[in-house]
Amino acid sequence: MIQQRGAPMPTNGSNAPNNAELERLRGIARQMRRDIVLMTSEANSGHPGGSLSAVEILAALYFHFLKHDPENPSWPDRDRFIMSKGHASPVIYSALARSGYFPVEELMTYRKLNSRLQGHPKHETPGVEVSSGSLGQGLSFGIGCALSARLDNKLYRTYVLLGDGECDEGQVWEAAMSAAHYKVDNLTAYVDRNGIQNDRFTSQVMELEPLSDKWRAFGWQVFEIDGHDLAQVIDATNQANAVRGKPAVIIARTVKGKGVSFMENNPDFHGRAANKEELPVALKELENG
C-alpha cells in the first residue's frame, strides 16, 4: 500500500493546502511533540530541543509530500528523506511510527538495549535511509540519491534536513558546491534554523549569518520561512520543488524546544530530556497547545 500520494508538482501558489488539511497536519504535529517528549523522558536522554523544532517540517513531509510505502521501505521509487541532523532522531522515529513503519509503542524502547531505535539513526531501522549522527554527511548522501534518480530517469525526490549548527561542518559546503555544479534540482534541503547548538547559541559558538546569502553564493535558490507555520512549510516546499536547474534550500526559522515553555530557546534542552517532575508539565502544555 502506498501512503500519502504526494501533491502534484506545482506551477504556482494555487495548490495551497486547505484548512482541513492544515488542521489534520497540526493534529499530527501535536502527536509528534508528545511522542518526542515522552520517548526522551522514558530514555532519560536524547535530544528533544532540536526534535521539537523540526516537527512541522517532518509532519509536512511524511504526511503531505512523501511518496513512500511503510510496508515496503526499500521501494525503489520512494521519495527519500535524509535526516542529516541525526541527533534529532526522536522526530523521525515519531514520524516513521505514525506513518506505520513500526508500532507506536516501540517508541518507548528508544535508546534502550536491543532496540531498533538507536540514539542516532541507523539504516537498519525501517524507513531510515542512512546512518547519521556524525554531522555534515546527509546532504552529500542525498545528492547521491538524487543523481541516481537522474541517471535512472526516476521521478522520486530527495529531501534532506540539516541543523543550523551542522552548517559549521565543512562537508556541508563541499556538498552545497557540488549540488549546484551538477544542477541537482530534484532535491530539497531544509535548514532547521533554531539558533542553538550543543553548547550555546549558534551566534556565540560560530556565527552563521548571513546564512541565506551563503547558500545563494553557493548557487542555491533560497526560501526563508517560519518553520512552525505549516502553510508556509508546504508553500515553500512546493516552490522549492518547482525550481529547475539549481538546488533549493528552505531556511526554516524555528524555536528550539518549540511547544514546551521551559524547553523553548533553552540550550539546556539540546541534549537533555524532561525529568519526572518536568514531564507532566510538558505534556500538559502540549495538550493545551
Binding site: 542512512v130 548522501f141 541516481s148
Partner: peptide, 11 residues
C-alpha cells in the same frame, strides 16, 4: 558520503 547515496539507490 555521496557514494553511499548512489549505493543506496542501486548504483
Amino acid at each position: 558520503s555521496m557514494a553511499s547515496g548512489f549505493a543506496s539507490s542501486g548504483k
